[in-house]
Design a protein around this nucleic acid. Structure first.
Length: 273
DNA sequence: CAATTTACCTGGGTGC
DNA sequence: TGCACCCAGGTAAATT
């Protein structure tokens, strides 16, 4: 399940390989992803030179003169870089064929996306996709004080706020649970009833948890070339996620599992208030 | 307007 | 071995 760390590790893996490559052909085997893959890509992209590979929230942005190719891995997507011909397998929906390599998207559940943003308008203003995304967790604008400010008057739980992405992006279910545990905040606590001091702790917890996951992913991730980018963070030891009934690493009490808005939450009832 | 629910997908696991 | 069932979760869209 790609959250921000896996997307960032993927970006760091493919960027040095892709930059400078000239696109020669695009192959769409299955256009039915979250949204249909725009047919015009097949004509727009050939001849374009890849200038940069960026990330916004969990979106990968591949910049070229005519515009930006937007990729989202959904919940089961992965990218690999091929330098020799490899027969496409099941769920290999999209190929970006370049001079020296092919970028191939595999996505069994098809919750991912391949979209196109023409040059000329700011991508952050793309309606419904980028215009209401929250702050990047590693940006200078994201702080505990700002987090506190943006949650005034919000009656929903802090876990819901984290997953919503309208205040801070990149935190999925795993790292929402882990961040709240590290900050000592109960997942069901109302967002408007958390002190500024505790929001400072939460902001630091989010940054720490994500940063460590990126580092671990980066060190254990296989080469993106000619191999599947097996996400390193699957091997990471979670402190609460998925640990129903197991002893809390802090107080040894049993980790509790609950459901919040149809999503699993794990937490320590003694350490998180 | 805020909050909540639904829908989209398939692989993997479980129980019978 | 097969089959029905449930769960995983990112996020837009629909509904309350």
């Amino acid at each position: 399940m790609p959250e921000l760390p896996e997307v960032e590790v993927t970006r760091q893996g493919i960027a040095p390989l892709l930059i400078g490559q000239v696109i020669s052909r695009v192959v769409v085997r299955e256009p039915r992803l979250r949204w249909p893959i725009p047919p015009e890509l097949v004509k727009q992209l050939p001849g374009q030179t890849i200038m940069a590979v960026r990330r916004r929230a969990k979106y990968l942005l591949i910049d070229m003169p005519a515009g930006t190719l937007i990729l989202h891995l959904g919940m089961s997507g992965s990218l690999r870089v091929l330098t020799t011909p490899v027969a496409p397998g099941r769920h290999d929906h999209f190929d970006l064929i370049c001079t020296d390599l092919t970028l191939r998207l595999n996505d069994p559940r098809r919750f991912g996306a391949v979209l196109w943003h023409p040059a000329g308008s700011a991508i952050s203003g793309q309606p419904g996709l980028f215009d209401r995304l929250g702050l990047e967790p590693f940006s200078p604008e994201f702080s505990g004080a700002q987090f506190w400010q943006l949650t005034r008057g919000r009656a929903v739980s802090i876990k819901t706020i984290l997953l919503g992405g309208e205040i801070v992006v990149g935190v999925g279910n795993i790292y929402a649970c882990e961040s709240l545990f590290r900050a000592g905040i109960h997942p069901q606590r109302e967002a408007s009833r958390i002190s500024k001091t505790r929001y400072v702790r939460l902001a630091e917890a989010i940054q720490g948890v994500l940063q460590e996951a990126i580092q671990q992913g980066g060190s254990s991730l296989r080469n993106f070339v000619d191999s599947l980018g097996e996400p390193g963070y699957f091997q990471q030891a979670h402190r609460v996620y998925g640990r129903t009934g197991l002893p809390c690493v802090n107080c040894a009490g049993p980790i509790r599992h609950i459901t919040q808005s149809q999503r699993s939450t794990w937490y320590c009832p003694r350490c998180q208030r």
